[in-house]
């Protein structure tokens, strides 16, 4: 990629960032996410980082896809509906540059919305955690902020993957209504559908036991959950360890595949 296309990429990304910052609905969504995370962390009475991760894991698994789809499903769709896409196509911007730039802009906003509250609630542990007595010698056990940091990084990666899927939704939907419908469907599929499918496959014998790890890699939520349990909780709880490779590959495949779909479908034919 030459310097020119990088500049174009950044220009598109900057435009998306500006859109996000100017849209109050996004600020409200981000604020809502932050409030939920803070409330959960507070009511969980976090005495350590690992318990905090376990308390946040399930909510994050549901809320991050919702947030990412909300942030992303109208990215291209909005441009198309307002006719701006037709204008953009008159610029010397390739499909890949436009999609990637738009993705970067929206994803950057999403990452800020996800990382900031998650990092902030970690402060509850040093502030209010501990073992509640000084009479008896205590130690940190296996608990460590490093483990929490892993959780934040994995959550960010998960958000990036779902944002890529949201991009694919936004390039394929023909109307706002269709966009909402597809986004909701995708959200339900992520949170419930894929895993339910794997369970059904396991019951029906379609998914052999040996391939369960691989199958879980195909579901972004399961891949994310597996990676968190493995890298954060694994050393502590001593559950049978799963290989992180299928999960990592699965998430990467979703990221690349969704962006590729978005690129291919964002527009077709010659520049007008």
């Amino acid at each position: 990629m030459n310097r020119e296309s990088v500049d174009r990429l950044l220009a598109v990304a900057g435009r998306e960032l500006a859109t996000v910052v100017r849209t109050r609905a996004f600020l409200a969504l981000a604020g809502g996410f932050a409030v939920v995370v803070a409330a959960l962390a507070w009511t969980a009475g976090a005495v350590g980082y690992v318990p905090l991760v376990l308390d946040l894991l399930t909510p994050v698994e549901v809320l991050v896809p919702a947030l990412a789809l909300a942030f992303g499903y109208r990215t291209v769709l909005g441009d198309a509906e307002r006719g701006e896409l037709d204008v953009i196509r008159t610029y010397p911007v390739s499909r890949a540059t436009y999609v990637l730039g738009a993705y970067l802009g929206r994803a950057a906003a999403l990452l800020v919305a996800v990382i900031v509250p998650l990092s902030a609630v970690a402060l509850l542990v040093p502030l209010f955690g501990g073992v509640g007595t000084t009479v008896v010698a205590s130690h940190a056990a296996s608990d460590s902020p490093v483990l929490y940091l892993r959780f934040v990084v994995l959550t960010a990666a998960f958000a990036l993957v779902v944002m890529a899927a949201a991009m694919a939704v936004s390039t394929n939907a023909r109307s706002s209504r269709a966009g909402v419908a597809v986004a909701v469907t995708l959200g339900v599929a992520l949170v419930v559908g894929f895993d339910a499918g794997i369970v059904a496959g396991l019951v029906g014998g379609v998914v052999p036991e040996g391939a369960l790890e691989l199958a879980l890699g195909l579901s972004p939520n399961s891949a994310f959950r597996g990676l968190v349990l493995e890298s954060v909780v694994g050393g502590v709880a001593g559950a049978p360890s799963t290989s992180p490779v299928p999960s990592v590959l699965g998430l990467l495949a979703w990221l690349a595949g969704a962006l590729a779909v978005a690129t291919v479908t964002v527009w077709s034919g010659e520049r007008r």
Binding site: S142, V236, A237, A239
Partner: peptide, 16 residues
């Protein structure tokens, strides 16, 4: 139910 599903995972690091 969802939140507490994982609560028993590390009992030793949980509040009493």
């Amino acid at each position: 139910t969802a939140i507490r599903a994982l609560q028993g995972a590390v009992p030793g690091l949980r509040p009493t």
